[in-house]
Design a protein around this nucleic acid. Sequence first.
DNA 1: ACCGGAACTGGAAGCGCTCTCACACCCGGC
DNA 2: GCCGGGTGTGAGAGCGCTTCCAGTTCCGGT
Lengths: 333, 333
Amino acid sequence: MTTSTPHTSTHRVTLEDVAREAGVSRATASRVITGCGPSSAEARDRVIAAVKALGYIPDAAARALVGGHGFRLVVAVTGHTPSTLDDPYVDRFVASVAVTCATRGIGVSLQWLPYRDPDQVRRLAKDRSARAVLLLNATDAVLRAVPAALTGRIASIGLGSTTVPVFDVDLAGATAAMVYHLYDKGRRRIAMVSGPAWMPCVARSVETYRSLMQAGGLPFRLVRSNFTADGGKAAARTALCRWPDTDAVIAGNDAVALGIIAALRGQGRNIPGDVAVCGFDDIPFAVLSTPTLTTSTHPVERIATAATTAVLDGSWASPATYYPSQLICRESA
Amino acid sequence: MTTSTPHTSTHRVTLEDVAREAGVSRATASRVITGCGPSSAEARDRVIAAVKALGYIPDAAARALVGGHGFRLVVAVTGHTPSTLDDPYVDRFVASVAVTCATRGIGVSLQWLPYRDPDQVRRLAKDRSARAVLLLNATDAVLRAVPAALTGRIASIGLGSTTVPVFDVDLAGATAAMVYHLYDKGRRRIAMVSGPAWMPCVARSVETYRSLMQAGGLPFRLVRSNFTADGGKAAARTALCRWPDTDAVIAGNDAVALGIIAALRGQGRNIPGDVAVCGFDDIPFAVLSTPTLTTSTHPVERIATAATTAVLDGSWASPATYYPSQLICRESA
DNA sequence: ACCGGAACTGGAAGCGCTCTCACACCCGGC
DNA sequence: GCCGGGTGTGAGAGCGCTTCCAGTTCCGGT
């Protein structure tokens, strides 16, 4: 049966080779391998045997070219600085997506969009070697660039849109829970050290904080920072100078919170005695720091998996799903 | 000039359209766009204008199909558990690669290889939509699966090979520096809490530690763990039970080190008074912990960039490059 | 014996692109 | 006036695959 031509080591095994080896046509071989279209049991056996014998691996590029779409999920992360990519939230998210996709035989691409350029999004959306796109930290401008026709193939993690499904942490709720918690503990002069203003999730958090403080007749004290510990240190010094009587700080994330704690303690402040500090994300070190960090934990894996399956299968329950965050009370607040 | 046919919104703009709009053939348009092959100034202008007017974006799948290789760099991370993907070293590495590639217009794929299956590597190597592959945590078995013909397109981060270029941290040197440092501080009963045994970098670190201790006639105390803080906590308890007089611990990474510190302090040990602890990686929180963590910092960005450019350009200076790590002495040792 | 239809198969088109090749053109030199 | 060499161009092949469509076989029903 095995009429295999002696093939050189440089020759790439194509469907043609499989078909010849199995004694069927390319069309039949293709039907067997893709599993769609009718095929007799005998043809199936022979093709599968040939695939094994030859070590055939379908060419993804050719499949994408003819099939209209490929087998990769693109995770596009927005942000001017590379640190956006090295963020613990993003890292966990990407890792979860990679795991989910690995079980489905789908590749994952990580794309950095430094300039939040709508054109880049259009480019991503038109790349047929990709099957779907997940947008992280997308802004309104970026989302508007998504072609309406592609709605089903693209999802946003963290910004509302009528055409694209949204999956995100309920950061407004998380922020509110944190403010209430600090208020219950007797804190009244609560400052916020937020992340970059352009980030949609930051905007929501700040807005919640602002409206709650306003509603309670409490002072609104906002310092912009980035999402790093060094940023937190700098912000702590700024905030202290400006409002020395601050008795609580809500940091944009845990790294910032830890930076703030380090800076405050460096100035002789007692945490949480003098100033309570809390963050977001519940990174592994939140429980290891001194004092342990009060923070808010997000169901990142659930969000990532939901968004991934939704966008790959092209169906989702509601246009926007917000996952509840959970406040973790530890020593720092 | 603009003889554009009224195109529907679903129609995808192809090279054909650009050529028609510019009044040249597909071949000429292709030459202009790829920039290789002769072309007159006039043809160039007209094609470029047409590209702009039509919003043409070359189809990556078609290019990969005909060109023999695509425009993506695959970063394949080995390891049974998803946590391998969520490791700070890997995260920094991947982020650096993504940044380097973004400036070159090359996509980055993140692939998880849970079973360290050589077949998966072969599959990766044959994927022509990829231009090159970077293997993280590759084992010998995985590297042996790399087809010799693909040598130029694949690089390993962390394991020696005669056919594939290697870029890695000089972990042996880093471990040695750490052992000497502890020895200089008067520590003699030095334990090591290493990462998973299958990891090549772990093997090198353990081997260095073993041979140094042996050479100095000092006890060899090894506990295997994973790379998490919880693993470190468990390992600390094990090590303490087995060798209660241990006066120093070298942890596999900073997360483990912080876990160990937490566990030891929980048992009333003083760090570094009773036990010195140090880690590897110099994560952002190493400087924020109490006590601050003595650790070893790796030039991850340099390694990532070097490996990326080497494998994309297909040329590298030497078969194996080991980048020196730097010991950062802080309070914990 | 005949026929309609279901089940399967192979030829061939074509996805969008690159690249080889043959051709057309223009120049200066004999 | 003719030829060699350089320069620019377009027709066309073909990358590996899926899928349409027409053809073949084989079945049960009449």
